[in-house]
């Protein structure tokens, strides 16, 4: 567990507070704009920024696709950007960055969410599953197989989110009818228009399981 949950809340602040004060008081950074010579060279080397950068970051431990990760992130970094830009897990897609398309859908503790609206720090201690963690080695998840079989995609960009949603949908038990599947898959936009094939793929997997 992160020390941020172990210690009283007030103690979690000082690091970021001092980093902020550092800039607010503007000791170095605002000075460099007017200072020649050594200070300017120091600024060019960006030592101050590098130090500040580290101060600014918060350690987060989380499990992604079964593997533990200890990372340091800025508080403003989203789970999606952590996955894509820091962990190299680009299977989760950014289509809007505002919870308006569903391309970034992942499971957090087994529940589907929009990772673009979830700050990475809030996921400390959580279990995240992305599209990369769905297959069992070389064996695809039945939903992945069904998406291929029913051609549930074209460009493929919304596909990771669609499949993560579809897998969650089965667990949620929202597969009583094509209409219910459609309604509860409506948080995942597909601009290529593969919706009817997506519904067929989900029905197929549901029938396999029942």
């Amino acid at each position: 567990m992160s020390r941020y949950t172990d210690k009283p809340a007030e103690q979690s602040g000082p690091q970021s507070e001092s980093r902020r004060d550092f800039f607010k008081k503007g000791s170095l950074l605002s000075a460099i704009a007017f200072s020649p010579g050594a200070v300017l060279r120091a600024a060019e080397n960006k030592w101050d920024e590098k130090i500040a950068d580290e101060w600014e970051k918060i350690p987060v431990s989380l499990t992604v696709n079964g593997a533990p990760y200890q990372v340091k992130v800025e508080a403003r970094t989203t789970l999606l950007d952590l996955l894509r830009e820091q962990l190299g897990l680009t299977g989760s897609k950014k289509g809007c960055d505002r919870g308006q398309c569903g391309a970034c859908t992942v499971h957090v503790d087994g529940v589907r969410v929009n990772s673009c609206l979830s700050l990475a720090v809030t996921n400390d201690g959580k279990k995240v599953t992305t599209i990369e963690g769905l297959a069992d080695g070389e064996n695809l998840h039945p939903m992945q197989e069904a998406f291929i079989r029913h051609d549930g995609f074209q460009c493929g960009y919304c596909t990771s989110g669609q499949i993560m949603s579809a897998v969650a949908l089965l667990k949620e038990g929202r597969t009583a009818s094509p209409e219910q599947i459609s309604e509860f898959m409506s948080g995942n936009i597909c601009r290529c228009g593969a919706y009817s094939n997506i519904v067929k793929a989900i029905q197929d997997v549901k029938n396999q399981l029942s």
């Binding site: 894509r84 190299g88 897990l89 680009t90 299977g91 989760s92 897609k93 992305t130 599209i131 990369e132 769905l134 297959a135 695809l140 992945q144 998406f147 291929i148 079989r149 051609d151 995609f153 493929g156 960009y157 596909t159 990771s160 499949i163």
Partner: peptide, 21 residues
């Protein structure tokens, strides 16, 4: 025939232009 790039797309392995590190 199913798509030749289907497996890459359903596993998140298809690499789009912004995903080259």
């Amino acid at each position: 025939m199913s798509r030749v790039d289907g497996r890459l797309k359903v596993t998140g392995q298809a690499k789009y232009s912004g995903e080259y590190k």
